[in-house]
Amino acid sequence: MRLLVVEDEPLLREQLAQRLRAAGYAVDTAVDGEEGLYFGREYPVDLAVIDLGLPKLPGIDLIQRLRAEDKRFPILILTARGRWQDKVLGLEAGADDYLVKPFEMEELLARVAALLRRAAGFARPVLCFGPISLDTRSQQVQIDGRPLELTAFEYRLLEYLMFHPGEVISKATLTEHLYQEDQDRDSNTIEVFIGRLRKKLDPDNRLQPIETLRGRGYRFALAPPK
């Protein structure tokens, strides 16, 4: 999942980026509203965290511009004032949730996870595909009730595939949404991660949850929850 963080205070921006990266997200940061607008337009953003008190282009205006350009990714606003008018205006401009500063990072992570899940069309926090269940709150994956040890990146990779069940997802798309800008973007490494994920999910090659479509990409093949 590729996240955009627009926050003018450098320390807070860095903290947010670090914490989100540690949770396995690919994070881009923008220092003001204009830069935020640029990233929002040009990058395949899955969710944006936007501070309302931004220089150059205020947060509310940034959200309105993004929505006017038909950018539909969820937006979480950070506001310094807990005033209801600010919250209402923010959500009316097109944001999906708000968080009042100062906030606990855990709270932020939970809100981000919930927004991403809902944007993918899942109303419940736990996704169940056959024997595989993925809990977006605890970021735990279980197979037949057995917890599975995944790295943060592996978790995001599986989550991305499970958020798009039955869809063919190219390596390029996975790279775009999961890799940090400065990381090695060799698409071959995706193959390596997919291979590891398959081994962990399906050690005896019985479920085959992730299909490979030659030259086109991957597909999460288990039946979606009913």
Binding site: L12, R19, A80, R81, K101, P102, F103
Partner: peptide, 17 residues
């Protein structure tokens, strides 16, 4: 609000780490 709350958020974030 912005100039008081943002440092608090930074402080909070630093403690969280």
């Amino acid at each position: 609000a912005h100039s008081l709350k943002t440092p608090l958020a930074v402080l909070r974030g630093a403690l969280d780490r």
